[in-house]
Structures are given as structure tokens and as C-alpha cells.
Nucleic acid binder design. Structure first.
Length: 927
RNA sequence: GCGGGCGUGGCGGAACUGGUAGACGCGCUGGACUCAAAAUCCAGUUCUGGCGACAGAGUGUCGGUUCGACUCCGACCGCCCGCACCA
């Protein structure tokens, strides 16, 4: 015995103290355990591959041991030429922030369960890991700590890698990639140039959030209340020439193909569909009456409501519309109004409260169906330049924004669509526009038509009518989706491989010169783009004419890096090309992708774009969709603790007490009572974090894995509680004891199931096989919480079976049944608690690894019972159970049901009207 | 505003395509073991009434369909998420 009872006792105490005294890597008050017994146990067990001979499972000894054995035997290494059917399971790779958090634990545990399960079922499983290693935090760290982003990033990768290894994940580490490695990003640069060739990359002007103090572009989320997050300066809108991926070229396909993703959450497909935002409408030109020296002779508007054309009261163009600029040249009032529009923030709050304002240009537009009908032309703050044509016609009766606008400027409204059930003679619009369908009124030749038919009629007539030499209108499909701007004025990103030459323009970096590597010698003590300030890096000769030229100093958005990493995993060793056709063909699409819902739109849409662009440029064969199955897991949340002074406390620094008035929290050091706050996403600011390292070192990885799979459905948030973790830890011990008991009753390893079992042995087999069948269903459908419950239930039933059997004499059939039960139980838990399973597997006398053992075969015939218990209802309320032969006829069931005493009582002597029998399910007596 | 989702014990949650509501876990109560505690094991735990067998009520609220509704339909209340001046 390595662990004696009194040593165990000691350890439990110390473990409990340990668990509550841990802090997220910031400080550790509790001295490391250096008591002799633990160390003795540690060294002995590691040197000895025999199972631990103990009443108590010691995760701290077992976990490193099995991790080492898995690594030595390379059992998780995946070979591309393995002939078995493939299965590719992938979790969204992490940003190397420094330490893993509980969200990672949950995400990677789920993926690992699937990987281990599929491997046991005979698939050739690809389960790789890498690092989304470019990004701003590295640059911020450089700025704050004077460390180089590369050093900071690689140090973080090293520590997070060892953390992930401590979780016992069945990953193929030989395929590890980091996006900041030139060996990775050189292929990305090559693809950028291929996309450029194919017309999928364009350069155009675009508005950005500009921080005038830091001289840098800010992402929207870096603008807080209109100010730069770091400098606090008021952010300006600036136009910069930037690089764009033409994601809009695939808008239609990206939308339509969502229907071919049945294994994606409906919610995500819907979000993407909304984001792409397809609308069908009419691009329609209005003729302008020339005035004020304006040369423009027409305005093109886009509308989805051509049916409301006779309700038009005005036209409006965006402040950035060319026409507005043209008029403003000679109209200082308008110039002032346009400037005012530019000052209004783009934040949600600003839009919400912004009044609808306009400036009357004095221009008049002619109604397409009536040259004498003149509509005033406004410049309006609510018209967006980057949707449609940047110009609209306003129909106030049937558009709320237009109505708000006319109510300010007194233009009035005419209803032209009468809602169903309204009287057209009395129907009026006041403060609320009617935006639904109906029948046309006040609309000349459209009167009486439905809105649908009226749209069609207007389109038909205006397509036939000409203005200038062209039809006055054409049907158009518009998308909300914009091209993807990828230019970032940052150092720590993939350099955009082009050179700007005064004579030749934009010149791609020749393939032979790739990669364009980031310079190492950098200073980060000034704001702005460090690459731009580097003394020599950007000065190069033009590859085309040899004249002095300037290297592009913008780097790519980090979303580019993560848009194709899943493809790189299929052959990360290919030095000459991003992908190898045969292995792309073999491995893609990813069968199961798992990650957070926060990536529902951008990352997943960009990856879908990339597979299409890669296909167009020959990097991918016929594939279009990268992820056949997608699962979005919930967050790990925790309650918050706060002192009276408003100071947050880490859960590890808080002691919970159960009082008569419920749970109360006390700060351990000061004894001060802390208010228990709402359960929220774990965050550093509220200190409601639990460090996976602490959990793994005090309870073990298996406990952490088991806990994050338990209780909550995987797509929902899981609440981290100390009680819950302890429950998981207890179950680890319980399973270890149970397997020990089963081992003492089981026939030797390798004994087949009993051929002619007694009733008792049969019952054990039935329970075990039934559990296995349900467990498989749950895992296949990613219902891990139910799978966990299934294991609990099986453990309970086997405990009962052991208790029931002990007093009797045990036959060989019982021994054989327990052998099967023990083996099945351990193999079922192996995907979730792999270390414990190995230890149990060895304790059961097996010489191989549980991780290398085929999944047990469930016998569906076995679970079919001869007799079944049918619930019997009277008028829909359950009154009794009826035990009948499985194949009993309806007449026999009816008679037996009516003979039941509780049924007779419930009938109160009333005559039976009819009896409904649903075979194998239920009997309902209607009286 | 638009789009989507969800409301079940003290808590997290189960309940397959309409068929025994509350699996499983946490917590709690009682008991066994112990000098004692921890751990472990056993029993109980939706609510109301009853010592009890049992009876009644019960899945946010109200109504409907059905032999039968957590599940389907309608209205309402509450919470959550996404998008947001997209013409």
C-alpha cells in the first residue's frame, strides 16, 4: 500500500485547504506540500507502471504517469496515410494570452471526448492544436513591459502548452502550428498574392476610427464613448486607403450554402444570414430639375418598396453623397450641415438618440410616373452612403424613419397601402408608419393591387421606360455584407507582401522573396505603427523597375490567420505550399468544430470565405464548406464576491458558510463578510475566476474535465461551484472504489460474457448494455451532461448489484457478467476521465491501454425484455403499472388493466367508454 | 425597432417524433460507522392534507386542440442573445 489510511486522511485535509486557498496564479499563501508520504508515493508510482494499490486514487501521481506513457507510445499521432475512415475534430485554437482559462478547459475537454470516442470506434482521428499567435495584446505587453512581442508570445505558448498537456488531451502535437511563425505566414502571404491575382483582393478608400494622439487606427471595440481606449482622445473618422478581401463576391453563395449545413446550430446560420442581409429591390433613377448650377441631372435610389412610390414626399441623399458635395461647394449652409453629420458618433447610443435631420438643397426631382410632380431633395443624416446607392425616396406613411423626418419638416404624408381590415376612406397615418402588406390606395394605376403585385407592376413599367438612353429602373439584389478590410497599422501581424513604387504602383513581392518577415529590432515606446517608424525595413528597391520604393507597412487582420489554419493542420510540414491537395481532399471538411458563440459571425464567415477563395486560386479542390459540423459551447460562469468598500475578491480567497439565512461569504484573510453577487462570465476585472492550474494540481485534470461536462447542457453556461468540483472529485474516488470491488468479483480479463446466464447475471448484462446504448446516443449528439448522468446511473446500479449478490453463492456466470460490467464501465468513462480510466483498466488486469482499446459492442437484443411494465392511466392520469408479456394482445391488456384495483377505484363504477392502448408505451382507460 | 431563444423542485438540469413530469448531480433532513470530526454507506427530499395506505394540486399566466400537453396552437407576462437609421 502506497497510501495508508491515516496518510489519506492527512492528504484529504491538506487537499481541502489547498483547494480553498488557491489564487489565480497571483499568490499562493499555502506552502507547497512537501510532506514525505506524498513525495514517496509520487516517485514510486512514476517508476512503476503497475496500478496503484490503494483505497484512494491519487490523480497527482497517476495523471503525469499516463500522460508520459501516451506520449512515449505516440498513440495520438495521426498518420495521413492511415487507411481507416477519417474523423477530423477541431476546437477553436487559443490566443496565447499566457494562461489557459476555464473556457479553454471546457472547450478542449468536449473536443477531446469526441476525439477519444471516435478513435475507440475505429476512426482515424485528426485532433490537432495550434496558436492564434498574432495580435494586439503582444504589442500592448511590449509597450508596458518592454518585452518583445515574439518573446512574450513564445513564452506564453510554452506555458500554455504545458497546461494543455496537463489536461491529458489526446492531441497530435506533431502538427502544432503558430500563426506568427514565418513558416506559417509565408503561405498566407502567398495566398494573399494569389487572391490579388484572382481579383479577390482590392485596394480602396475606407473610413476608419483614427486616434489622433496615438496615431493609430482603432477597431470599433477599442472606441469607448467616442474616445480611444488607451489615449482617451476623441476619435476621428478618417479615410485611408486599405486592403480588402472581396468577400462580397461570394455573398450569394455564402448565404445559399447555409442551407447545406444541417449540423450547424440554427441560430448561427440565422445570424450569418442576417449579417449577409440579402434584399431584393429596384434601383430607380429620378430626373433632377437643374438649378443652382448643379451639373448632376439625376439621382439613383434603391428601394425594396417600389409599391409605395405614389406615397413619396421627398428624396434624400447621404451626407457623403457626391451630389451633396457638389452642392455644398456653393452652399456654405449645406457644407456646415455635412460637417455636423460627420461629428455625430457612430456608437449605438448616438444613433438611438440622434434626431432625423435634413438640409433642403432646393433641388427638385421629378416623379417617374408624373413629370409635373416635384419632390424636394434633402441631404439627410439618417441616409447611409454605404448601403444601396446612398440615396432614398421617402415614403413617410410606410416607413417610420421617413415619417419621423417629415413630421419635423412638415412635409405631410399620404397613405398608399391600406392594411387588411381597414377602411381605405378613413385610413390615416399619424405618428406610427404602417410597414406591413395590404392593398394599394391613392396610387392611380396601382389602386386595388396587393403590395406584392404593385412592386411587380412598378418594376415592369419602369424597366420599360427609359431615362437618358437607359431603362429608368432595374431590379437589383443588395447585401448588407461589406468587403473585409484587413489592413492594420500594427507590428505584430502578418506583413502584407506588396511594395509601393512611385513609377510602377503597387508591386507584389516576388514569390522567391517570401516570406516578408517582420524585423526583429523594434522599439515600442512610441504610439502608432512601429513598422512605419523602423529605420530601414520599409525601404526597398522596386522588384519591377529597381527604383527606390516603399514596403507596405500595414499587417493583416488576425482574423486572416485563423481563416485557414484548419486546412494547414492537414499537412503542416509542406514547406513549398500552403496545402497538399491529397491531404486536403482526405481530411476536409472538419467533421466537428467546437468553439464559442462569439465567433458565430466573423471568424466562421471569414473561414467560409477563405475556403471559396482558396478553391478559386487552386489551394483547395472541390470543397466549399470548411466545417461540416459546428458546436457552440456555453461559457463558464461564477458568482462574484465584493467587499463593502467595493473591492472584488477571488473565489479562492473567500470562505462560504451555510447559515440559517442561506449562504454567506467571508474573506479568508480579513474575515470581512463579502456580498455574494450575481453569477457572471469569469473575468479578471471582477476576479470571479478559477485557475485551471490550481484545480488540476489540487483535484486532478479528470475531476476538472468531469465537472465541466456535468450538469449543464454543453451549449449553455455552466456555473462553476466549489461544491460541484468536490462532487466530481468524490465521484472519481467512488468510481475507483467501485472498480476495485468489481475487480474482486470479476472473472479474469479476457473472459467472454456468460453464454447461459442466470436471471441475476442476465440482469447485470442488461443494465450494462442499456447504459452503453444510451451513453453512445448521448455522446453522438454531444449531450455530455446526459452521458455523465448515464455513467452515474450505471455506477449506482452496479453498486446495488454488488450489494445484492454478496450474500449468495456466486456462479461463473456472475463473475463473467461483472467482468463485462467493469470493462464497459471503465471504457465508457475513458473519453471523459482518461487517466482514471487507464488506472482502472490496469487494475482490472488488462495489459494494454484503455486509450488503445476498441469501443465495447452493445448488444441490442439483450436489452429487450420478455415482460414490460405498462403505465395505466384513467382519463389521462396514471393510476397503476401493469406488468404484461411484451407480446401480449390488446384484449389481454384491456382485461388485465381493468382488473387492477387502483384502476377500479379511480373509475368510481363509471362505465368505460374506450381504452386506448399504445403498444409498448401506455394504456389509457377513458370513462 | 427587427430577428431568434428560453421560462420545470431549494439549485443545475432530465423527459426520444404528444404517452409514467422531476432521470442524474448539488444541497438539505434523518440514520449507521466513529471518543469525535472528515470520508464512506443507507433512507428520505415537488407542494398541500394525512401517523399511514392514500388523496388533491402541479412544468411563467390565461385560453384552445387531444383519450392524453413541459411538448402542439392563440394571447399575455418575464428573462436572455444577436443585429440595428440597411431604404
Amino acid at each position: 500500500m502506497l497510501c495508508r489510511p491515516n496518510w489519506n486522511r492527512h492528504c484529504e485535509r491538506s487537499e481541502a485547504i489547498h483547494a480553498t486557498s488557491r489564487v489565480s496564479g497571483l499568490r499562493r499563501r499555502c506552502a507547497p506540500r512537501n510532506d514525505a508520504p506524498c513525495h514517496l508515493a509520487l516517485t514510486e508510482a512514476i517508476d512503476d507502471h503497475k496500478p496503484m494499490d490503494s483505497e484512494r486514487y491519487n490523480a497527482r501521481v497517476a495523471e503525469p504517469k499516463w500522460q508520459r506513457i501516451w506520449e512515449e507510445r505516440e498513440i495520438f499521432r495521426t498518420r495521413n496515410n492511415d487507411p481507416r475512415e477519417k474523423y477530423y475534430v477541431l476546437e477553436m485554437f487559443p490566443y496565447p494570452s499566457g494562461r489557459i482559462h476555464m473556457g479553454h478547459v471546457r472547450n478542449y475537454t468536449m473536443g477531446d471526448v469526441i476525439a477519444r470516442y471516435k478513435r475507440a470506434r475505429g476512426f482515424n482521428v485528426l485532433h490537432p492544436m495550434g496558436w492564434d499567435a498574432f495580435g494586439m495584446p503582444a504589442e500592448n505587453a511590449a509597450w508596458h513591459n518592454k518585452t518583445h512581442p515574439a518573446d512574450w508570445t513564445y513564452a506564453n505558448i510554452a506555458s500554455m502548452r504545458s497546461q494543455l498537456k496537463a489536461m491529458g488531451l489526446s492531441l497530435d502535437w506533431s502538427r502544432e502550428i503558430a500563426t506568427c511563425d514565418p513558416a506559417y505566414y509565408k503561405h498566407q502571404q502567398r495566398m494573399f498574392l494569389d487572391f490579388l491575382d484572382a481579383g479577390l483582393v482590392v485596394r480602396k478608400k475606407s473610413k476608419v476610427n483614427w486616434d489622433p494622439l496615438d496615431h493609430t487606427v482603432l477597431a470599433n471595440e477599442q472606441v469607448i464613448d467616442g474616445r480611444g481606449w488607451r489615449s482617451g482622445a476623441l476619435v476621428e473618422q478618417r479615410e485611408l486607403t486599405q486592403w480588402f478581401f472581396k468577400i462580397t463576391a461570394f455573398a450569394e453563395d455564402l448565404l445559399a450554402s447555409l442551407d447545406e449545413l444541417p449540423r450547424w446550430p440554427e441560430k448561427v446560420r440565422l445570424m450569418q444570414a442576417n449579417w449577409i442581409g440579402r434584399s431584393e429591390g429596384l434601383a430607380l433613377r429620378f430626373e433632377l430639375d437643374r438649378a443652382k448650377g448643379v451639373k448632376t441631372s439625376e439621382i439613383e435610389v434603391y428601394t425594396t418598396r417600389a409599391d409605395t412610390l405614389f406615397g413619396a414626399k421627398f428624396l434624400a441623399v447621404a451626407a457623403d453623397h457626391p451630389l451633396a458635395a457638389e452642392i455644398a461647394k456653393n452652399d456654405p449652409g449645406l457644407a456646415g450641415f455635412i460637417a455636423e453629420c460627420h461629428h455625430v458618433g457612430t456608437s449605438e447610443a448616438a444613433i438611438e438618440t440622434a434626431e432625423k435631420k435634413g438640409y433642403d438643397t432646393g433641388l427638385k426631382a421629378r416623379h417617374p410616373f408624373d413629370p409635373d410632380w416635384q419632390l424636394p431633395v434633402y441631404v439627410a443624416n439618417f441616409v447611409l452612403m454605404d448601403y444601396g446607392t446612398g440615396a432614398i425616396f421617402g415614403c413617410p406613411a410606410h416607413d417610420q424613419r421617413d415619417l419621423d423626418f417629415v413630421n419635423t419638416y412638415g412635409l405631410g404624408n399620404t397613405p398608399v397601402v391600406c392594411p387588411p381590415g381597414e377602411d381605405p376612406r378613413t385610413f390615416r397615418i399619424a405618428a406610427i408608419a404602417y410597414e406591413g402588406d395590404g392593398v394599394l390606395i391613392n396610387s392611380r394605376f396601382l389602386d386595388g393591387l396587393t403590395t406584392q403585385a404593385a412592386r411587380e407592376e412598378v418594376a415592369r413599367r419602369l424597366e420599360a421606360k427609359s431615362l437618358g438612353n437607359r431603362p429608368q429602373a432595374r431590379r437589383e439584389v443588395h447585401y448588407r455584407l461589406r468587403d473585409w478590410g484587413i489592413s492594420r497599422q500594427r507590428y505584430w501581424g502578418c506583413p502584407i507582401p506588396v511594395i509601393h513604387c512611385a513609377a510602377c504602383g503597387v508591386v507584389p513581392v516576388p514569390a522567391a522573396d517570401l516570406p516578408v518577415e517582420l524585423p526583429r529590432d523594434m522599439s515600442f515606446d512610441e504610439p502608432g505603427n512601429p513598422l512605419d517608424r523602423h529605420p530601414s525595413w520599409k525601404h526597398v528597391a522596386c522588384p519591377s523597375c529597381g527604383a527606390p520604393a516603399r514596403r507596405e507597412t500595414d499587417t493583416m487582420d488576425t482574423f486572416v490567420d485563423s481563416s485557414w489554419y484548419f486546412a494547414r493542420f492537414t499537412d503542416p510540414w509542406n514547406d513549398v505550399a500552403a496545402t497538399t491537395p491529397a491531404w486536403i481532399e482526405k481530411w476536409l471538411p472538419v467533421d466537428q468544430y467546437i468553439g464559442g458563440i462569439e465567433h458565430a459571425i466573423l471568424h466562421l464567415l471569414y473561414a467560409r470565405f477563405f475556403t471559396r477563395a482558396m478553391q478559386a486560386t487552386g489551394h483547395i479542390g472541390v470543397l466549399k464548406e470548411p466545417f461540416a459540423g459546428l458546436f457552440t459551447q456555453g461559457m463558464v460562469v461564477h458568482e462574484t464576491y465584493r467587499s463593502k468598500a467595493g473591492e472584488w475578491f477571488f473565489p479562492a480567497d473567500v470562505r462560504i458558510e451555510m447559515g440559517s439565512d442561506g449562504r454567506r461569504a467571508f474573506h479568508i484573510d480579513s474575515g470581512e463578510e463579502a456580498a455574494i453577487g450575481p453569477i457572471e462570465k469569469m473575468s479578471k476585472s471582477k476576479k470571479n475566476t478559477v485557475d485551471p492550474d490550481d484545480i488540476i494540481s489540487s483535484y486532478g485534470a479528470d475531476t476538472a474535465r468531469w465537472f465541466v461536462l456535468s450538469d449543464s447542457p454543453p451549449e449553455r453556461d455552466v456555473i462553476w461551484t466549489e461544491e460541484g468540483v468536490q462532487g466530481a472529485a468524490k465521484f472519481v474516488q467512488r468510481l475507483w472504489r467501485l472498480v476495485g470491488e468489481l475487480a474482486s468479483l470479476a472473472a479474469p480479463a479476457g473472459t467472454p460474457p456468460p453464454t447461459n446466464p442466470s436471471q441475476a447475471a442476465m440482469e447485470i448484462r442488461r443494465v450494462v448494455h442499456m447504459s452503453l446504448i444510451k451513453f453512445e446516443e448521448d455522446i453522438e449528439r454531444l449531450r455530455f451532461n446526459r452521458a455523465v448522468a448515464q455513467v452515474h446511473e450505471l455506477a449506482n446500479k452496479l453498486s446495488v448489484a454488488i450489494g445484492a449478490i454478496e450474500s449468495e453463492t456466486i456462479g461463473q456466470d456472475i463473475h463473467a457478467a461483472f467482468r463485462e460490467a467493469a470493462d464497459f464501465l471503465v471504457l465508457m468513462t475513458a473519453p471523459m476521465m482518461p487517466h482514471l480510466a487507464e488506472e482502472c483498466w490496469a487494475a482490472l488486469g488488462h495489459t494494454g491501454l484503455a486509450a488503445g482499446t476498441a469501443w465495447p459492442a452493445a448488444d441490442r437484443e439483450l436489452v429487450v425484455e420478455d415482460t414490460i411494465a405498462l403505465p395505466v392511466q384513467v382519463n389521462g392520469r396514471k393510476r397503476a403499472d401493469l406488468v404484461v408479456a411484451r407480446d401480449a394482445g390488446n384484449a389481454a391488456i384491456e382485461a388485465a388493466a381493468l382488473a387492477l384495483e387502483p384502476v377500479r377505484r379511480a373509475l368510481h363504477g363509471k362505465p368505460v367508454k374506450k381504452i386506448i392502448i399504445v403498444p409498448q408505451r401506455i394504456v389509457n382507460v377513458v370513462a
